[in-house]
Computed example of a mutant assay.
Amino acid sequence: MAITATSTLSQFSAYMPLSFPKKLTRNRVFIRAMSENSSTSVSTQQEPTPLVAPLDFKAPEPRRFEIRPDMRGEVLGAALPLIFRFATGVFVSGYSLSFVPKDEIPPDQYAMFEINGYKLKETSKANLSRRPEKPIEIYEFESCPFCRKVREIVAILDLDVLFYPCPRNGPNFRPKAIEIGGKQQFPYMVDPNTGTSMYESDDIIRYLVGQYGDGNVPFTLSLGFLTTLTAGLGMIARSGKGSKYTPAKLPPKPLKLWAYEGSPFCKLVREVLVELELPHVQISCARGSPKRQILYDKTGHFQAPYLEDPNTGIGMFESGEIIEYLKTTYALQ
């Protein structure tokens, strides 16, 4: 199933105020619909004004199991889909966990937590031999239940995706999706690895599990109307968030977000990315994903969401501060 364009329906953030400089001016841009390689860039009519890191910017220290006081209501609302969708999108396919003596997991290896001399060991059965060479491209927006279904299977299959946000009245990717696909309908998927493109969320799900999974659609994504209904009901508390365009500068290069669909903190960040129409490569890292260890090796810590902005060189944890950074850097007054 799919939805027409007009439909609406992180790990833990620690409070740390940040100050940012004034915003930069906007550039007129034209967008390439397809990525040429894994380091996709946004094509412009003229050389874009380089973005720079905000003056005196200091990335906040990641703090687990804390929620910024001013964001508690938002996090609670963003967590509602976990209930309606039975945590679909939280775990990679074939997820399992066990408690093992802490000595069995080296200090430089990621483990969610340690208690009484034991560490939590998480594994999955994702088919790592069938990974796409280039990120799959999906035109969608956050508050669409059909789009959510596709994002859930992306998390389950541990796939990396280049998301082109298509908020209502967005001047860039929504018109481009209509131009290349011929319909004002979302989600719309393009797989540059196979030359396949398609509408209809259920068709996209079947394609992805057939091409990059074991061919079996997870039960919670195979219930037809009930799947779509629960996806929509889960968005009630955040109705309209991540669906309407906020004027913003388009970055020369897509941002990179380490995230997964089941996290309410990641959802809050994605709402802003969509509203600002910021293209971003999402590095899926649901529970059981081996990419958690990759981020751990990269930063010495694992927590989602984690934002990397190649346009400014900024890398940062903490959903609340990521949202502030995105609005300050890209939103237009």
Rank of each mutant, 00 (worst) to 15 (best):
H280F: 15
G300W: 05
L273C: 05
V274R: 00
Y306A: 12
P305D: 11
L268F: 06
L278G: 03
E308I: 12
Q293S: 04
V281C: 10
V274M: 09
F302Y: 12
Q282R: 12
E275Y: 09
D297I: 07
P290N: 08
Y296H: 15
S284L: 07
Q293K: 08
A286F: 01
S284G: 11
T312P: 06
T299D: 05
C285T: 15
D309A: 11
L268Y: 00
T312M: 06
H301N: 13
V272L: 03
Y296L: 15
I314T: 14
I294S: 13
L278A: 01
P290R: 04
G300Y: 03
L278D: 01
H301Y: 14
Q282G: 06
Q303F: 10
C285F: 06
Q293V: 07
E275C: 08
Q282I: 08
Y296E: 08
A286W: 02
G300P: 04
V274C: 15
G313D: 11
L268M: 14
H301K: 12
T299V: 14
E271C: 11
E275R: 06
G288W: 04
L307Q: 03
K291G: 02
I283C: 10
A304W: 02
G288N: 07
K267I: 09
Q303K: 12
P305C: 10
E308T: 10
K291M: 05
L273E: 08
R287Q: 10
V272D: 00
G313M: 07
V269S: 07
K298E: 13
E275K: 04
A286T: 02
P290I: 04
V274P: 03
R292Y: 01
G288I: 05
P290K: 04
L268K: 04
D309Q: 06
R270I: 14
A286Q: 00
V281Q: 13
K267M: 12
Q293I: 03
R287W: 13
I314D: 05
H280V: 03
C285I: 12
R270F: 06
T299Q: 13
E277Y: 09
E271I: 05
E277T: 11
V269G: 06
I314V: 15
S289E: 08
K267Y: 12
Q303T: 15
K267C: 11
Y296W: 14
L276Y: 07
I294T: 15
E277C: 10
V269K: 02
G313R: 11
T312R: 03
L273V: 11
P290T: 04
K267E: 14
K267H: 14
D297K: 13
E308N: 10
R287E: 12
